[in-house]
Design a protein around this nucleic acid. Structure first.
Lengths: 123, 123
DNA sequence: TGACTATATTGCTATGCAGTGATATACATA
DNA sequence: TATGTATATCACTGCATAGCAATATAGTCA
């Protein structure tokens, strides 16, 4: 288990990354770009947040290395740069027992079929 | 990919969980109890934080369902209740390229061999 | 009962940061 | 050049929360 061995300095870094992910708007942005590149304008519309705010959040995600930038003329396109974010969200979702939150028959069905999964005790 | 399908409400919950993990002291507490039960007093000593502070953080971890409580006389023992935290940390560590943070000779050595004398100093 | 210990809670301050409007920068087009 | 558009940055406000001292609560022991 890596966790045991992490010195305090490392814990700070890990916490910092979790903190980057601890913001609904940023998760929304990651969700949007995880399907493919999107321009800032598109992200602003899709996320339903202010332009300055989205730009700032994108800057934070960029600095954290979670997304990457590509400039093309007037537009700037963002994309996922660290696929681990997706895994992290999946893990959290499972832990939160939120298979249902995906609110899609596909998921519900898969859930019913592959029921051998470890049951997350609902606290 | 679950992430794609998460509605905004779910994103808030996921963000909330990440935020709980986005605090060095809380990660430290999780690190300490992940080896086994510990009393609050022990945690206060080991974490090097104030008693009130540790108690508050433990409360937050408890409410998030990440730890569990057991009372025995005057003492209260905390333990990990959600093993996914460990996985989450591992994922983040790997993503951060912090295998080296495990501070083992192997890594230090590799670090020294592969590089010139450039010291990796903190920020 | 009272004294003592372990833990939780309260009230407070200070800091971090999300959100916003205004402005700056970069690029394109005429 | 001037004008317009896309993005980034600045300055500011307000809110959430980490940390702390003091106090409260709960349990033990005399």
């Amino acid at each position: 288990m890596i966790l045991k061995r992490l010195p305090d300095e490392a814990l700070k870094l890990v916490a910092a990354r979790f903190r980057v992910l601890g913001e609904p708007v940023r998760l929304k942005l990651l969700q949007l770009v995880c399907e493919g590149e999107m321009s800032v304008t598109e992200l602003v519309e899709a996320a339903g947040a202010g332009q300055a705010n989205v730009s700032k959040h994108l800057g934070i995600l960029l600095e954290a290395g979670l997304v990457a930038r590509r400039k093309e003329g007037l537009n700037v396109f963002y994309r996922i740069a660290d696929e681990s974010v997706i895994e992290l969200c999946e893990l959290v979702c499972r832990s939160l027992g939120m298979r249902l939150a995906a609110q899609h028959e596909v998921i519900k069905q898969a859930n019913r079929v592959g029921r051998k999964r470890t049951q997350p005790q609902g606290r």
